[in-house]
Amino acid sequence: MSDVSQREGAKREGKMSSLSRQQIGTVLAKQGILIAFVIFIVAFTIANPKFLSPDNLLSVVRSSAIIGVMALGVTFVVISGNLDLSVGSMMSFSTIVVLDLHDKIGPLLAIPTMFAMTLCLGAVIGFLVGYLKLNSLIVTLGMLSAIHGLTLTYSGGKNMDIADKEGTWFGFFGQGDILGIPVPILLFIALAAGLGMTLSRTPFGRKVYAVGGNGTAATFSGIPRARTVFYCYLISAACVATAGLIQASRSLGSQNTVGQGLELEVLAAVILGGASLLGGSGTIFKTVIGVLILGFIQNGLLLMGLQFYAQFVVTWIIIILAVWLDIAAKRGKLWSSFA
């Protein structure tokens, strides 16, 4: 008798714990990144109260704006089931070109010309990946290198500087502010809002999800797969051009390698936000969260007095941890049972 009731009790208990574990899993899977975000902020605030001061918050967002703007475009590419590793070197290109043209044809013409040139690069990638169906990893890795070479050829390897730094309004995009809010942040917010709406609410956005989720089914539904991928790379290039504009305007001078390595930070932000590298999932909102997490981690580590180079290591450990926890939450356990 007691044996039976004991077994019953054990059974019920087992059921309880499995149920609540399932619920926790569901919550984690849906909100994992947000929860991680809150934990980071609390931890850093405890470590250094200055972390949450308005000045510091603003500076984090401001310094994240360039990565953030590029991450918005890469989100489209990743959801469509592709990669873009060329954004870093493409941003160097945009920055150098706009600085050079500034003195040659004036800022008013320099900016649209630079956008057009950057979009051409995006169109080349979009053509190769979308229409020729080449592997995006290979294409954009190749373009990373090719565009770097293009930039150096263009500049002759020299740093680019605006001659009359005092007498130009060009610094507005990187240094100016409207109602006390820095322009880079405003640009980031405006682009995030616009692209967020595009992705979540327009027919084009729906096509991006369909193409990345199941390209064959998208084709069988009459969705132009190649064109959709092509546009994703154009959007990515437009975002890169905007980032280049902010960068150039902020410093009014630049090295050829200003964007070097940023492609990985951008991709990390997108993945941190929870977009799947396999395509078909992710949102602009989540990417923004990913960008902020990355920014806050780097800023927090800085405030804690961590040596600059050590930051790279710690940042990446945290990113890997976050991705791991995200995946673990999705599959309900930390380890995969399949070796």
Binding site: N214, T216, A217
Partner: peptide
């Protein structure tokens, strides 16, 4: 060929 399994019912139907 018929469905994007990760999408919801409505979005699949109106694709």
């Amino acid at each position: 060929q018929g469905l994007v399994l990760g999408m919801n019912c409505r979005d699949n139907m109106t694709l």
